[in-house]
Design a protein around this nucleic acid. Sequence first.
DNA 1: CAGTATCCGATGCGATACTG
DNA 2: CAGTATCGCATCGGATACTG
Lengths: 238, 238
Amino acid sequence: METVYGQFCPVAVASEIFAERWTPIILRELLQGSRRFNEIHKGAPRISKALLVRRLRDLERAEVIASTPRADGRGREYRLTPAGEELGEIVLQLGKWGQRWTSRVERQRLDAGLLVWDMRRRIAMERLPAGRVVVRFDFRGVPAAQRHPKIYWMLLERPSVDLCVTDPGLEVDVYVNAELSALVRVWLGDQPLAHAVRGGEVKISGDPRLSRAFPTWLMLSPLAAVPRPGEPNQRRAA
Amino acid sequence: METVYGQFCPVAVASEIFAERWTPIILRELLQGSRRFNEIHKGAPRISKALLVRRLRDLERAEVIASTPRADGRGREYRLTPAGEELGEIVLQLGKWGQRWTSRVERQRLDAGLLVWDMRRRIAMERLPAGRVVVRFDFRGVPAAQRHPKIYWMLLERPSVDLCVTDPGLEVDVYVNAELSALVRVWLGDQPLAHAVRGGEVKISGDPRLSRAFPTWLMLSPLAAVPRPGEPNQRRAA
DNA sequence: CAGTATCCGATGCGATACTG
DNA sequence: CAGTATCGCATCGGATACTG
């Protein structure tokens, strides 16, 4: 390992591993349960594949992650080692810090694809009705610079959640029409969903029963409940 | 702020601030009480001044640190904001992680100058005798690549500790002759001082009474007491 | 002491294309 | 799907010199 800082201080040695470009993001993905290369890549789409490979190898040499070839022979499976799990706590703390002390909804950060990719992991399965529910998201206010899709289909069917960016040809049960920035604020706990609905920034329509139930399935970001600096008490967990 | 990751996720936003080259090291220095430009620089001698200035400005824009012009008109005084203090906890955690999961005494990391600069902050003032005590450090095993001095004088005189790299011309009370790697291991809690002395890696001589007392003045690194992975219980704080 | 200013070279990294 | 391989450039940052 090429030493960047030339210091024996444990902070310096740890920083050489952790404080590299994209590394905290990659760890975040692993922490949230991603195991496969392209799964990790979907959570960090702006990293080039070559660089992602390199970071994964670096983390493996540092014994923060370990990988094994998959049974089906297609690629490897990545997971955190015990050391990596402990680094994960730091990732979490960093997230809490970001939640408390930074603003996060500048236009350049808004990304509908990442939002639905995140939401997919935060569906309260046990509250879903039996059978399949199809939710279609239409985003307004997506930064023009982005070539990303503005429409996403989320297929909820216990015990899995699938995402599509092309029409799967299924009947849609719930339509969510949302100003992207508003739904991100809701997601991060900066604004109650009901508030955004009242203001017209988010509209939920379709099957009446399922539409009413939808907000109860969608848990918010795990960081939504982090108390902000001014707040005397913490909020209820989402 | 140019967004690197293009993500609204608080981990990403925080990483753009924290996970930059040298930034954790700079925060560590501020956390340990450095307030002035050159003081910070001494704790991170391999950073160029231009880059240090830039990082300090970046951190100030992120409201992690704040600076005010000094009363004497010479430069500014830097300190952590409340947000910065909370980031400091993450720096500490990162140090604990490094202490637990990394090895730190490869030759390229060994730096006598940084060691004495660190030790200076960890002298138990209240245990010092009245009057001035002069300790001279002679290091063996300093990596040849380094042009750094191998001899340091530490002037202990309540309530301050001064360092010299040139002979201050004072009578020396305590001589410490040490293999650099061994003293670093002692400093980081990897080896008891008594052990290194018995092994001949560290020799303490000079005034008998003061030499015997010296190890009781020198506290170890704040991270020395961090329990290692295998250990069932934590050690006593140093 | 605490910075600016300028230069210039390495390398980090994205873009793109290719592969078993 | 999970990578390799190659190219090319931008930017990061080190070195050096200068300043109030």
